[in-house]
Simulated scan of single mutants.
Amino acid sequence: MHPIPHAPARGPARAKPDWYPATAKYGKPDIRRATWQIIDTMVPYAGLWALMILMIRNGSPYWMTLALAVLAGGLLVRIFILFHDCCHGSFFASRRANTLMGFVTGILVFTAFEDWRRAHGRHHATFGDLDRRGTGDIWTMTVAEYRAASLRKRFAYRFFRNPLVLFGPGPLILFLVLNRFPTAGARRRDRISVLLTDLAILAVLLLAGLTIGLRTYLLIQLPIILVASCAGMWLFYVQHQFEGVYWARHENWDPMRVALEGSSYYRLPKVLQWFTGNIGLHHVHHVRPRIPNYHLQQCCDGIPALKAVQPLTLRGSLKCLKLNLWDEAKQRLVSFRTLKSLPQAV
């Protein structure tokens, strides 16, 4: 067994709150709900693919295909949540079933199961820790680091944090190109997982070329993965980059506080909550990562401390775009625009 390191390997020990044990009951997988999620997600996704193939072959206007691709992209986001749960070993009770489902959905979302599972586990163990940034998170510099950086590094950072890049070609490059290679610190099984996933994706391309045609495949797959990857990047961004977020140096880093205050409660309209697999309840997910997505809302409703967390609304989340740097003096995220008004460190 290779458990995901949900807790840091070292650092200050923190007592869990009295209500924490009550969250355990929500962490039990439910085979019926898991099976239904596979049906209500995979079947419509396959149906949309079949319909778009017919539309392209019949010469229908391409904008109609693109309209369906947006819907399919939403379903692919939901498929990624199923993949994500499998990586945590929470979707099914069976480890083997999670691995199999994770590998299959990993092919659909262009992400290797074992490699992403390890990297994402590292994210859970280090997010909000200023001394252990860099794995599975959005590149974030402190004000002091930015001021001390070279002009070249400042330009690279501003370019990366530009919304047109971060939520445009950036996610597409991540899923289609960067995910084809093992991440830093990959083990042998992670590298094998990446290789097998890449070979499976290549097999899909070859099969498409022999059946529906490579052109038809790309006209459908590219807009779907663009929609899904950009939406996914936005979700990941607002989960840990928002006003009032908690970050700390390692000696002061509190795992429970960072779960409650360093992860957003992104309250979305019900239809978007469905497409995103309840991942907006991200504070609940980080409090106990083994809770499957289909139990997150129940847990939030059943634990007053979780329900009391200030939610981030869809409109309010747009303000997160202006947050670019962590100001250690004021313990908050600030924008590039306000950088000149901040005092220089002595």
Rank of each mutant, 00 (worst) to 15 (best):
G280K: 02
P292S: 13
F159V: 04
D129G: 02
G232C: 02
L314D: 08
L174N: 10
L54T: 12
P61S: 05
F80L: 04
A7F: 15
R249S: 11
I291L: 04
L210F: 14
R57S: 11
N98R: 07
V109F: 14
T140A: 00
A7I: 12
P223E: 13
P44N: 09
C299T: 01
Y265P: 02
T216H: 12
F103R: 06
G316C: 05
L205I: 15
Y246C: 04
G213I: 12
T111A: 13
W63E: 01
I138G: 00
S317P: 05
M64C: 08
T111K: 05
L75W: 08
P61G: 09
L68D: 03
K16S: 13
L68A: 09
P292K: 09
T35N: 10
V258Q: 14
I279R: 00
Y246R: 09
F160N: 05
L130S: 05
V258E: 08
F242H: 07
R315M: 10
R215T: 15
S341G: 15
T313P: 06
S264V: 07
W253E: 09
E243L: 01
A15F: 04
G134R: 02
M1G: 11
L214C: 06
Q297R: 13
C230W: 08
R78W: 05
S335L: 03
Q273N: 15
Y217M: 13
G136N: 03
H285C: 10
L54R: 15
G232S: 06
S341K: 14
S90M: 05
D190T: 03
H123A: 04
A34V: 08
E261Q: 10
Q37P: 08
R118V: 12
K28W: 10
T99D: 14
R337P: 00
S60E: 14
P169D: 07
K319P: 00
R158S: 12
P223Y: 10
L321G: 02
L76Y: 13
R118T: 10
E114V: 09
I201Q: 12
F83D: 13
P61H: 08
L75C: 03
D129E: 04
F83N: 13
L306H: 00
M55C: 09
L339Q: 04
L176K: 06
F113S: 08
A148M: 01
H124D: 09
L196N: 02
Q241F: 13
V204F: 08
L210V: 12
L166Y: 11
L312I: 11
P21N: 02
L166V: 00
L207T: 11
A13R: 15
A22Y: 07
Q273P: 05
D198Y: 04
D198S: 14
R180V: 01
A186W: 05
R315D: 07
R188N: 03
H283D: 01
R147T: 04
V43Y: 08
I53Y: 10
W247R: 15
L196E: 07
I53F: 06
G121I: 09
D198M: 08
H88T: 12
P182S: 07
L339M: 05
G121A: 09
L166T: 01
F236Y: 13
A119N: 12
M42D: 12
F92T: 06
R14F: 13
I303V: 03
T197P: 02
T41Q: 04
Y146D: 06
Q37I: 12
A119P: 03
T140K: 00
A15W: 04
L196I: 13
P343E: 08
P21M: 05
V309T: 10
L100H: 10
